[in-house]
Nucleic acid binder design. Structure first.
Lengths: 335, 335
DNA sequence: ATGAAAGCGCTAACAT
DNA sequence: ATGTTAGCGCTTTCAT
């Protein structure tokens, strides 16, 4: 029996004698034989590896993305090559190089911000790519566009319905495209309900807890304080909660706060954080599907592909009716 | 110029003419050439891949481990093959198979619990392995032993010094070796300070928030309630905090709580959680070093290797002096 | 239905 | 110092 026959048996080529197939499988069991993926990849030209680039695993936004991406990948007999760049262009470059060397069949760039020239090499090789929000429209690259407005609109209407009138927004860093999109969505949503945003109530954060804490301090020092604060991400909201804890301000009694992202942490906060969900599981799934579709597509679409991810409000316990305005409008309210 | 020369130039074999080396590198730049790792691995017999098996990425204990392991791996020109098993033996088996097929040079099994027969295949192949707490002593397998006692002793002494007398402990699942080790450490530490543990105050949790919440409920229903609760892990402590929040019990004023693990979340809690740190970064580093040492060791040690990871108390704000006992002993204390 | 042989991209041994 | 050749483990023609 030749190696060719064995190969055929393993790969279930129908023309092999069932008797032989049996023998082959028995031998495999006995010898504990496992095929060598490298050799397979070498001859087939298909590595069955997808690259996955994230900013940092310790940012609570990413673990679920990686988890889900990995699970789906395995189901499709793909392996993932994971790298976290810490937002360092040099690391980004090195990870791209490693990915090319390992012959990845596609790369999901889940790092918010920078769609860099660093990726030129990947594009040159026609490696399918998928970005969040920032990708160019060109063949073999897909984009996951986040519909920030849908969820943020819900959040704004939610607090407005709770009679809040002074609604603040803490932004992310203004260098970050996705953060600016969130701010714009907030402004739009405010306009939609016929109000004019009070610019004093829009302050800049940096998507960290400390940034949220500081920004909250500013807001609380205002002559006319907000009664509700919406945040550009959950970590910011956690900073707000921290600040309120320090200052003895009770959430949601004295102040309502809403986050964005719905990282796992959000539900562990006390009180559990009301937040706009941008499903990490869904994001991962879309990214994988986009890559897979591209790999299986013979002729690349000239304009690449686009997918949209909706966002939606998750009501938990960090928002409540505005006490002052509830009283003003004659609504009884227990203390 | 032959391919061999190019290969030598790339691999910096000193005997090649500097002129040629120059030309080679220039051509590489121009053509955007990257060596094919698969082919290299095939001929060299070294994949430069380490497997990393974790339980689940969404468990806050793991992301930092993965992050650090990956960072170190890259620095040593290794790639990691990451799989999360969700504690499912079947997934564990499949991931082991995939690792063998990809010719990993070593595997770090960071999944607390089960050192399974599933790993037989790996052992057969003499693949270096590293476990946490549960590995057998045999050639090519290393063990990271956690020194639970050092940190738990500090925690016990810390709350004892704060005049707490009724100190409770919420365990993990009793099927989990590492959880039982923590409980034993607690008992030992209590004895060390000359006290007898009150078995009524030892209740079982399951390392989840809900488990902690329930266990805390039991403890609070006791005729003689504890004034301090130590937990087998941080998620349990978070459950305790949740329960107290629901019941209007103030931490640390009415109750002190201590966690274990020091997951990132701990510092974001309100109040920030006092906890026993088991450094995830250190754990990852030890695991990688163990693997690397084993790969580079020609002759395997007959008994494998052992490394010890210390634990230590991180004091934050969820513990405070016991009010009742402070008063009883005549200590004034502001409200 | 099976075997023989070529070749995937690279490195190492041998030859020059 | 460089080129030639063989071979890593596998799949895939091409014969038979």
């Amino acid at each position: 029996m030749s190696t060719a026959t064995v190969s055929r048996a393993i790969n279930r080529v129908p023309t092999v004698n069932p008797k032989l197939v049996q023998r082959v499988w028995r031998a495999i069991k006995e010898l504990g034989y496992y095929p060598n993926t490298q050799a397979r990849a070498l001859v087939s030209g298909r590595s069955r590896i997808f690259g996955l680039i994230v900013s940092e695993l310790t940012n609570p936004f990413f673990p679920e993305i990686v988890q889900v991406f990995e699970t789906i990948a395995v189901r499709h007999h793909y392996e993932i090559l994971l790298t976290s760049t810490m937002n360092d262009p040099e690391q980004m470059e090195s990870s791209v190089r490693r990915m090319i060397e390992r012959q990845v069949e596609g790369v999901a760039v889940m790092t918010f911000g920078m769609e860099d020239a660093v990726l030129e090499d990947l594009k040159l090789r026609q490696v399918p790519l998928v970005f969040v929000d920032v990708g160019p429209r060109r063949p073999r690259v897909s984009n996951l566009r986040i519909d920030y407005l849908s969820g943020i609109r819900q959040a704004v209407q939610h607090v407005a319905a709770l009679r809040h009138e002074r609604i603040a927004f803490i932004t992310g860093p203004h260098t970050l495209k996705s953060a600016m999109a969130r701010k714009q969505a907030f402004l739009k949503a405010i306009h939609e309900i016929g109000r004019d945003p009070d610019m004093e109530l829009i302050v800049e954060g940096n998507h960290t807890m400390e940034g949220g804490r500081l920004a909250c301090g500013h807001l609380l020092a205002l002559a006319k304080k907000p009664t509700a604060i919406l945040c550009s991400n959950d970590m910011t909201a956690i900073g707000v909660m921290r600040r309120c804890y320090e200052d003895g301000i009770a959430i949601p009694r004295d102040l309502s706060v809403v986050g964005f992202d719905d990282i796992r942490l959000a539900q562990f906060m006390l009180p559990p954080l009301t937040t706009v969900q941008m499903s990490q599981a869904e994001l991962a799934r879309l990214a994988f599907d986009a890559l897979l579709a591209e790999v299986e597509r013979e002729e690349p679409l000239p304009e690449g592909s686009e997918y949209v991810l909706k966002t939606a409000l998750i009501e938990r316990e960090s928002t409540a009716i505005c006490r002052s305005n509830a009283a003003a409008s004659g609504n009884a309210r227990k203390e």
